[in-house]
Design a binder for these strands. Structure first.
Lengths: 281, 281
DNA sequence: GAGAGAAGGTGGCATAGACCAATGTGCGCG
DNA sequence: CGCGCACATTGGTCTATGCCACCTTCTCTC
């Protein structure tokens, strides 16, 4: 069939198609439409599933957005790009807008095995479970699953979850003072349902936060599992490396992204880590 | 055609198939094989592309691994799970093993627009570019793309990149003292080539680190772009929340994963953030 | 003129089939 | 007995095609 591959170096037809579409994208401005799938199939000489597979990659990469019944468009905002904004390379990007909450679900359920193990309660213990959608300037940013032993917060209302500070509620109503929390962060991809809630394409990258909070006595009081959009949320650390200083007790691990040994005898002396929201689209 | 959907609740055939395969997975032990694609197609009454789409989801989720010419197998180790290891809920997971480096590429190239802008040099300036594979206990953990202005490190050798400390080299050979660095972290998914290097399936979640390091005078000296495997690398923060304290100047942003307002008047007082490696599979 | 409905275009899902590439097996030849 | 090559099996890719759901727009009707 035709001249076919063997010319482009890349063996996968998908890749040739992807690069071809990429040129179309780069020749346009954000929000512009690109030709329809069927037209592109004819122009590039591939079948529609193949073309869709190529487009899928660009959609996951955040360069293209699809709209059912309307067409495909160049992504509104640069996504996954630009550590620093402008001329001053060490400038932090600006922070985002107004955060609000919307309670999607609010129930009392048995802890179950997984949650029970984390909160150190029997699997049958009653747990207040809340699912909150976190928004910035009105557009979805994160999904938050909250798990709190029910006996700790007998009077917790949906209203308080929308507007109040949960930790304030802990202290003022129940005399529970939060002490320490351990939080882990890892990358993941969104399922269909999660992606719909966050208004991003399926399989989009996201950050999964898991946080276990204990009171001053070390008893777990809260287990939170949050999913943050990867295209608009990022974590920025500012590291002051400074001169060599006697490193105090080296804890387990190392500074994220800097493998042990790279800073041999003078690990980061101080650092601040912040979550920042990218300008919306 | 047949009775078709409308019966299973879930409308997508993919989902029904995925759940069916999931049952097969759960009935087996890690490493066990599941029936071949063509057999499953016949059993479940779907076409192969549909079945493959369902399997794709399970592969991305880390529950299934495919081996060309051999078959499909239940993933060796649970992936993306378990904040805390055992009984003591606030215990940090153990850290990983021995880190090593392997230089994949080492060239001198023009900076180009993107890198040049970050390092504040003309696009034509010569840049030493190195690609290193970072391994833990011999298995791949991260890909690191290093960019340093060539005139800063005239004598840098591949050997030093394998074993030395780059920042030590900066200081001892060239009198360049690193000062501050800004690093951003965001989730992403791996391309085919990246996934092959890290020995994980395509489209696996990963953490993208971008770090711009400046010397004590604020001049950028290093731009690093790293991709860390999402299934074995995570970031763990330990937060000491403590009693309310007068918050000093609130910087831009907030603590990652804790939206502003949640800690209203008593933001995290101290915290330590570490990168940790998950036990291998 | 305005609203309702039909028509056409778009992306979303699924099918059936073909060929390629990598792996493992077993038979046959030396 | 041992080395190789052919073959069957498995996953990987691509084609061609159909139907459905959604959106826009044009047109017809009231």
């Amino acid at each position: 069939m035709e001249i076919d591959s063997a010319a482009s170096g890349a063996v996968l037809k998908r890749e040739r198609v992807r690069d071809a579409i990429l040129e179309l994208v780069e020749a346009r401005r954000p929000g512009d439409a690109i030709p329809s799938e069927r037209v592109l199939c004819a122009e590039l000489g591939v079948s529609r599933p193949t073309l869709r597979a190529a487009v899928d990659e660009l959609v996951v990469a955040g360069l293209l957005v699809r709209q059912h019944g309307r067409g495909m468009f160049v992504a509104a905002e640069k996504i996954t790009q630009e550590l620093v904004s402008g001329r001053d390379s060490l400038t932090l990007p600006r922070a985002g807008g107004v955060w609000t909450s919307r309670v999607l679900e609010f129930r009392t359920l048995p802890a179950g095995a997984r949650v029970g193990r984390r909160l150190r309660v029997p699997p049958a213990a009653r747990i207040r479970c809340a699912t909150r959608l976190r928004l910035v300037d009105g557009s979805p940013m994160a999904i938050e699953h909250l798990h709190v032993p029910a006996d700790l917060v007998p009077g917790l209302t949906e209203e308080e979850l929308e507007h109040g500070d949960l930790y304030e509620h802990f202290r003022d109503r129940h005399g529970v003072r939060v002490g320490e929390a351990v939080q882990s962060i890892e990358p993941t991809v969104l399922t269909r349902a999660e992606a719909d809630l966050l208004d991003v394409p399926e399989l989009s990258p996201a950050l999964l936060f898991e946080r276990l909070t204990g009171d001053t006595g070390g008893r777990p009081v809260e287990y939170v599992r949050s999913l943050y959009r990867g295209d608009r949320y990022r974590i920025v650390s500012r590291l002051a490396l400074g001169p060599a200083t006697a490193r105090r007790e080296p804890p387990e691990g190392h500074h994220p992204g800097i493998p042990p040994g790279d800073f041999a005898s003078r690990g980061p002396v101080t650092f601040s880590t912040r979550g920042v929201v990218q300008g919306d689209g």
